[in-house]
Amino acid sequence: MSGDLQRMRYSIESVRAREEKLGAVMSAMTAVATLLALLSVVMFLGFLIFLGGDWLANAQSATSGVDQPVKSNFEVLLWGGAELAVSGGVFPAIVGTIVLTLVMTVIVSPLGIVVALYLTEYAGTGWHTRLLRIGIQNMAAIPSIIYGVFGLAFFVYVIGGRLDNLFFAGNLPNPTFGAPGLLWASLTLAILTLPTVIVATEEGLLRLPLALREGSRALGATRSETIFRVVLPAATPSIMTGIILAVARAAGEVAPLMLVGVVRYAPTLPVSVEAPFIHLEQKFMHLGFFVYDLTMHAPGSEGRVGIVAASGLLLVLVIATLNLAALLLRLRLRRTFLRTGFE
């Protein structure tokens, strides 16, 4: 009897020992993986900061003449110069990136929310709803350049061409909207980020307790009153999360933009201080494309890495700023609709 007990204790102890060994291995493995991830981020940012910062810190560029006023490398990067081999510096590219992202957000947010509302609140649970949902989720997996091709073919040629024929016939054969531009680039990015907003909003809507909807219906509210007065406000934090993810994705996208509106040099900004303030038909510059252009077309190999790293650093900063703005907005809204229960 006591022998049985002894044996049992042995087996328990051996199992426990094995589990402890396994646990130690697992914790070591996860720690190593985390370190690797951290290291790559630090190396990446370090590369940008050291090379880019170093180049920026150099006060004078080698090629500036004697009688020319001394320009810091920062000014050269911002406003352009001979060293960049691109007219117009990084400033118009930053403005272009921000304006593009904002216009994209204004288009994708209402569209994504409305689609998510339809899918969760009105479409029911039949096979066609499921099919639609799977289709939308898979849209996120399409390579972004395909969106660019679609944008060029559909938005620019089909819709833009039609618009020109209808409203700007006087300018033909010079295209107004029938050529790549800010509006078509924004629309293309909106289509690209649509699944992100839809999926996040849907998740937010589905997570709301049934009791919330029932409570509203029991007070004599109709379905749409319930949706617009109770359900949507309660889902705002999730919707904002979706919009933040969309902004993050859109701000870093370059490939599709090359087809639908980005150029290496635009003589004017897409925004102005006079009406109509924003020029949706104009071509514009973009930080991502600027970095690509700089890398591929700047003269000489010396110092090129520094310029590219510096503009890369700026790109990262701009995207981080856009994300931060969206995050702060979300925080504010969350305070308004504070609801710990389903956050």
């Binding site: 307790p209 919330l212 029932e214 509203s216 029991a218 007070l219 309660a234 609709f337 504070l338």
Partner: peptide, 14 residues
């Protein structure tokens, strides 16, 4: 509106 209802779990709106 004539027949009000109170549920098992308190369900105030956010």
């Amino acid at each position: 509106r004539r027949v009000g209802m109170v549920f098992q779990q308190p369900n105030p709106f956010p």
